[in-house]
Design a protein around this nucleic acid. Structure first.
Length: 207
DNA sequence: AACTCGGGGCA
DNA sequence: TGCCCAGAGTT
């Protein structure tokens, strides 16, 4: 068994309920809620974005709003209002370049306003079940501390993780690493004493 | 690769 | 109030 498989196994036992926290309907709704939830702490995003896209469920309903109107909606539900410009522009890009459909490739998704590498790969995996390994700062930090990835950029870490794990494990592993990074393998003063992975962790060994 | 941006969380 | 942070965008 590889180290990556071992880590996966241990994390799966530690976090039996780990899964995607975003509840979404359509790919477009996932896209909007992913953008809005970026940089926000995960809680509260769910019901809040739900409210938003119940009122405005698709591209067309957003296209009827001015940027200021979108900003007011977002402000009212308590999320980053500065994302309104991105969402306003993105909906026009979807209309003009993609026939109002959420595109299904990394390059196309990343061409949209406010959509970067992480948001794009989340949409590919969650909405279209296209294999990808989203790397946020949690996944980046935990993978490197464990010694599963050595790359210095999120893209490299993503590639390394995909090579080390069978495809069917990618999706859950992503959520397991995020959960672990939030709760135990935190950025400052990680809680190594209680870590279920300390016996196989490069960072812990070096301490 | 390093920096900027800028609002939320938290002490 | 000031410090940190996540992710996108820019240089």
């Amino acid at each position: 068994m590889t180290k990556a498989d071992k880590a996966y196994q241990l994390l799966e036992i530690e976090y039996p309920n780990a899964k995607c926290s975003l509840d979404y309907g359509t790919p477009f709704q996932l896209l909007v809620s992913t953008i809005l939830s970026a940089q926000a702490t995960d809680k509260s995003v769910n019901n809040v974005t739900e409210k938003l896209y119940k009122l405005y469920p698709d591209v067309d309903s957003f296209l009827t709003l001015t940027q200021e109107e979108i900003e007011n909606k977002i402000k009212k539900i308590g999320l980053y209002k500065n994302k309104s410009k991105n969402i306003y522009n993105m909906c026009r890009e979807l209309r003009d370049k993609f026939n109002k459909e959420v595109p299904k490739t990394m390059v196309e998704l990343m061409s949209l306003s406010g959509v970067g590498r992480k948001t794009a790969s989340v949409v590919l995996v969650e909405a279209f079940k296209i294999p990808a390994f989203p790397v946020d700062t949690h996944v980046f930090r935990v993978s490197r501390r464990l010694g599963l990835a050595k790359g210095s950029t999120a893209d490299k870490v993503s590639d390394e993780m995909m090579k080390k794990l069978s495809k069917k494990k990618w999706h859950l592993m992503h959520h397991l690493l995020i959960t672990h990074g939030r709760e135990v393998c935190i950025a400052q003063n990680p809680k190594c004493e209680i870590c279920c992975l300390k016996n196989i962790c490069t960072y812990f060994k070096a301490k």
